[in-house]
Amino acid sequence: MPDDTGSSDAMMLGGASGDARSPRGHAAFSMRGTDDRWVVIQLNTFRNWVSEQLRRSNCEIEDLQMDFSDGTKLCKLVEALQGKSVGRFVPRPMNQLQALENCTIALAAITRDNIKLVNIGRCFNF
């Protein structure tokens, strides 16, 4: 069993370094077995990051599922990240077709810049 005395074994296992392998290290380690809590933390972190990116557009994200559902904030996020316009999108979509068109415009702008979307999974109940 490693100790915190600074021995090489303790350093390799993270006992003295305070990394994720240490019981008192990284928060992710202490959350083993609490997948739901980890997902909530990740969603809140992402929501805060997106809101920070959209601050210049005077937008804020409160609920990722609802706020991205019509594609307008998604288009604004892509514009903020790319530093250029995605093109014309419907600022106040009146139906599902217009909302889908907005999402398509945002994803097309990402594709034009050869950005690949990876690790995109279903984490909401759509």
Rank of each mutant, 00 (worst) to 15 (best):
9 D>Y: 11
30 S>V: 03
78 V>W: 00
106 A>P: 02
54 L>C: 07
121 G>Q: 08
81 L>E: 14
58 N>D: 13
120 I>F: 04
83 G>H: 08
68 F>K: 05
125 N>S: 13
82 Q>V: 06
14 G>C: 01
58 N>F: 06
14 G>W: 00
34 T>P: 00
81 L>F: 03
101 E>H: 09
122 R>W: 01
100 L>Y: 07
32 R>F: 01
14 G>D: 04
121 G>D: 11
41 I>P: 00
18 G>W: 06
11 M>D: 03
96 Q>E: 14
48 N>T: 15
78 V>Y: 01
89 F>A: 02
35 D>V: 08
11 M>G: 02
99 A>C: 10
73 K>A: 03
96 Q>L: 09
74 L>S: 02
69 S>Y: 05
6 G>W: 02
66 M>G: 04
116 K>R: 12
41 I>T: 05
28 A>E: 08
122 R>H: 04
19 D>I: 03
101 E>K: 07
25 G>F: 04
41 I>L: 08
46 F>Y: 05
36 D>E: 13
7 S>V: 09
125 N>D: 14
65 Q>C: 01
34 T>E: 13
29 F>C: 06
119 N>R: 10
71 G>C: 10
50 V>P: 00
80 A>V: 05
103 C>A: 13
110 I>F: 05
14 G>M: 01
55 R>E: 11
2 P>A: 15
61 I>N: 07
20 A>C: 09
110 I>W: 02
82 Q>I: 06
106 A>D: 04
93 P>Q: 13
20 A>G: 07
